[in-house]
């Protein structure tokens, strides 16, 4: 089976903005593959390179070496992003628009015909439970509602791959549950989800496979069951052992 996401020996460097501050390696020799229909968890402590990896996949950051592919197309090509949906960690949308207008804007970018766009807008707003607030300006939404608008815009093109950067960050327990339910529904629909999270319990519940990253290097990857069995504990304990901070007895 061909990988939907393929990262090949990726290296990303950042040059410091201050004079003479040198170059910092954000990712080094990263190799990763994500297959259709799986929910893939991307884990690591803060500054491990998770968001950088996603930024490379989305074309925001250009690698110093190596390459990344979506559906077999190099991410440098805009067409590679035709079949993906992306939810950034912090969601900010055009505040002068309503949810419906925002979704119509993104639908136009994907060149969805008017009827198809209307159908998709109704569908995703129902999915994220924002139907009653669809004509209200986004600036009046709560944080949870804004996160759900973010999810709706990520789904407007009915993507085959969803890239979610910490989708439950900053949400209350109810919001987290809703987002988790949505991810599970998407999984049932056969979508591929690639998401980063600090919530290891949540990852353990919804993910098929995970990759653990630390200081720009891939330390481990595999099925959740395999990792927990190999490291004799739950995912959190396995994670801590892998990154070199074994849990206290």
């Amino acid at each position: 089976m061909d990988a939907i996401v393929k990262i090949d020996n990726l290296r990303v460097e950042y040059r410091g903005r201050e004079l003479g501050s040198g170059t910092k390696v954000a990712l080094n020799g990263l190799n990763l593959e994500v297959y259709p229909g799986e929910v893939f968890g991307f884990l690591g402590p803060n500054g491990a390179g998770k968001t950088t990896t996603m930024n490379v996949l989305l074309g925001f950051v250009h690698p110093a070496a190596g390459a990344a592919y979506l559906f077999g197309v190099n991410v440098r090509e805009p067409i590679a992003r035709q079949r993906i949906g992306y939810l950034p960690e912090l969601t900010y949308y055009y505040k002068f628009l309503s949810a419906e207008e925002l979704l119509r804007f993104y639908a136009r970018i994907f060149a969805l015909p008017r009827v198809e766009a209307d159908r998709r807008i109704d569908q995703v707003l129902r999915l994220v439970e924002l139907e009653p607030a669809r004509r209200r300006p986004i600036k009046t939404y709560s944080k949870g509602m804004q996160q759900r608008v973010g999810l709706a815009q990520a789904l407007i093109n009915n993507p085959d791959l969803l890239i979610l950067d910490e989708p439950t960050s900053g949400l209350d327990p109810l919001g987290r549950t809703k987002v988790r339910e949505i991810i599970q529904r998407l999984k049932q629909e056969g979508k591929t989800v690639f998401f980063s999270s600090h919530e290891l319990g949540e990852v353990e519940t919804v993910c098929d496979r995970v990759a653990i990253l630390c200081q720009g290097r891939l330390l481990a990857q595999g099925a959740v069951d395999d990792l927990t069995r190999q490291y004799q504990g739950n995912l959190e304990q396995a994670f801590l052992r892998i990154i070199g901070h074994p849990p206290r007895p």
Binding site: L58, G59, F60, P78, I79, R81, Q82, I84, Y86, L87, P88, L90, T91, Y92, Y93, Y94, K95, Y106, I109, F110, G150, Q153, A154, N157, I163
Partner: peptide, 17 residues
Amino acid sequence: EQRTIFPLLAKPVTRAH
């Protein structure tokens, strides 16, 4: 500043667009 550029460029949109 408002980070709306991220979801926008995550679509099939180039910086030239």
